[in-house]
């Protein structure tokens, strides 16, 4: 059953069509990824779903409700929360304050404390550093904080914009482990990545976005083995044998 259905979504910035008409589905309980090159419209798609950029056509349906052009605060309350690109934690607020901002639209203090404990349980490092200014954390810790902050809003759908960007390979592994764990706990995940290899490995289903259009779709493993995808996004130049051992 699909949690999020995007139909013929169109977005343009100052006369340039960033999204020409894209349609896709995100099924409940899955990790779905949008892959594509720089400027293909991945971030724009997430921003449009979050209500951060105006939609000029098409519709976005979430959990049976039409959410196209709602205010971001309404969309967050509905259960769609974004982890922005480049982490974007609040550097001059403490880790704890960052988490509390994530629960901004919630009012029940007891439930919020319970959520803080829930996040601390998953990210013990954040508990250790709860008093520290977020700007002094390492990149990986900031990414954990960004995820933790998003979890504070109790999302049904967590949208992650390039979570592996600028992180060391070991940390990237950690992040993907966390993404899987969240999926197993029932949170649906929409992931966009330039690191197509890692994203398709992690994902249950994937879409390929090219200059504002969806050109391919399929299960993560299927796309991963598709020669066209391999050529364009997985760094396998034409002529190389596909039997070559993959770098892990």
């Amino acid at each position: 059953m699909s949690l999020l259905t995007v139909t013929d979504l169109k977005v343009s910035y100052g006369g340039i069509e960033a999204l020409k008409s894209i349609s896709f589905d995100v099924r409940k309980g899955q990790i779905v990824t949008l892959i594509g090159a720089n400027g293909a419209g991945k971030s724009t798609t997430l921003r449009a779903i979050s209500g951060l950029v105006p939609v000029i056509g098409g519709s976005i349906n979430f959990d049976g409700r039409e959410i196209t052009s709602l205010d971001t605060s309404k969309i967050v309350s509905e259960g769609i929360v974004m982890v922005p690109e480049g982490r974007k934690v609040f550097p001059n607020l403490s880790v704890l304050e960052n988490l509390k901002i994530g629960a901004y639209l919630r009012t029940n203090a007891d439930e919020i404390s319970a959520s803080i404990e829930y996040v601390y349980e998953r990210f013990p490092r954040l508990k250790e550093r709860h008093w520290q200014m977020a700007g002094t954390l390492s990149g990986g810790e900031q990414q954990m904080l960004a995820v933790g902050r998003a979890l504070m809003a109790r999302p049904k759908l967590l949208m992650m914009d390039e979570p592996s960007l600028g992180l060391a390979p070991l940390v990237v592994k950690d992040i993907f482990r966390i993404i899987h764990r969240l999926r197993d706990e029932g949170i649906t995940i929409l992931l966009i990545e330039q690191n197509a290899n890692a994203a398709l490995r992690a994902a249950d289903y994937g879409y390929v976005l090219e200059t504002g259009r969806i050109t391919m779709e399929g299960e993560g493993a299927t796309l991963l083995n598709d020669p066209k995808v391999r050529d364009a996004y997985l760094g396998h130049a034409k002529g190389k044998k596909s039997s070559e051992p993959e770098v892990k």
């Binding site: 205010d71 971001t72 969309i75 901002i101 901004y104």
Partner: peptide, 23 residues
């Protein structure tokens, strides 16, 4: 207060604050 925290969040990063549902 919660409002004050939201103000500081806006100061630190408008985009992220908006993404968290802060008007």
């Amino acid at each position: 207060s919660t409002y004050g925290r939201a103000l500081k969040a806006i100061r630190d990063d408008e985009t992220a604050a908006e993404a968290m549902g802060i008007n």
